[in-house]
């Protein structure tokens, strides 16, 4: 792993190359990433704000940021499971640390994320007046404080998310290389996870059904680890109420996940080249 870090010029270069490669010979190049995210976010925002009876001014930023962060998670999980399988050729022909492939993939996703962040900046600029003071989304009981300096908390939040992406890709990458059923399983469940996670629907909506009392209905969100990962980045970016319990949950996942990943790496690293 230390070798992989030493070779960061390699995976940084390769990650960039992957993006440039995808848009080679297209005129506006990687800007397509931004455009497609922008279109999706605006279209979904317009549609669902009506369906869910939400105010556009607070809902559109919510779904935009949710979607951007979700796309990062989605990319890391789905590509993470196939990271070694996809790099079979390189693994068999060039002696590079296994972690290089993982870091390259995560770095590529980070770059995608940064491209998509442009959409956030635009949305933020448009809805700035509605987001900077206290506001409630439909269904919320406690009002959100609005955007302030806490927006900076999104940076450590995203850093932590990225750190988690690395262990997910390492661990699931190794397992999926050995058991080829894992990638299809992940692919079919990730769609479900998207609908179960508060991305399109705000958590506050759950309160409508529970009249603000704790019930299993709220637990739908709380028992979903993705929700906590999402929230540590999303909440500061749109000025939602911050809750430390998200950080605690994510922190626990980070420690346990890395422990498992390091264990897997130590025991099976040398087997990966046999399995691919």
């Amino acid at each position: 792993m230390r070798d992989a870090w030493r070779q960061r010029e390699l995976w940084e270069h390769l990650g960039w190359q992957d993006i440039k490669q995808r848009y080679r010979r297209s005129i506006i190049g990687p800007l397509w990433i931004t455009i497609s995210m922008g279109t999706t976010a605006v279209a979904l925002g317009l549609l669902y704000s009506q369906l869910l009876g939400q105010e556009l001014g607070t809902y559109l930023p919510y779904i935009t940021v949710g979607f951007i962060v979700w796309n990062f998670i989605l990319g890391c999980v789905t590509e993470g499971t196939e990271v070694f399988i996809a790099n079979e050729g390189l693994i068999k022909h060039l002696p590079a640390p296994m972690t290089v492939h993982v870091l390259r993939m995560v770095w590529r996703q980070v770059l995608f994320f940064l491209h998509n962040l442009v959409v956030y900046v635009v949305v933020l600029a448009v809805f700035f007046p509605t987001l900077t003071h206290e506001y409630k989304m439909d269904g919320d009981i406690v009002p959100h404080p609005g955007i302030s300096w806490t927006v900076l908390l999104a940076i450590p939040g995203f850093a932590l998310l990225t750190v988690n992406a690395v262990w997910v890709a390492l661990l699931f990458g190794i397992i999926s290389t050995r058991f080829r059923d894992i990638p299809p399983v992940i692919h079919s469940f990730i769609q479900l996870v998207f609908f179960m996670t508060p991305i399109v629907w705000p958590v506050g909506v759950l309160n409508k059904f529970t009249n603000g009392e704790a019930s299993w209905k709220v637990l739908i969100a709380e028992f979903n680890p993705i929700y906590h990962f999402l929230e540590i980045v999303r909440a500061p970016l749109i000025g939602h109420a911050l809750s430390w319990h998200h950080w605690v949950v994510v922190g626990a996942f980070t420690v346990v996940g890395w422990a498992l990943a390091i264990l897997a790496l130590r025991n099976y690293r040398s087997r990966v080249s046999y399995w691919v």
Partner: peptide, 10 residues
């Protein structure tokens, strides 16, 4: 190593 010339070359 120089093994397969197609691999690692884009």
């Amino acid at each position: 190593p120089v093994f397969d010339l197609g691999v690692g070359m884009d």
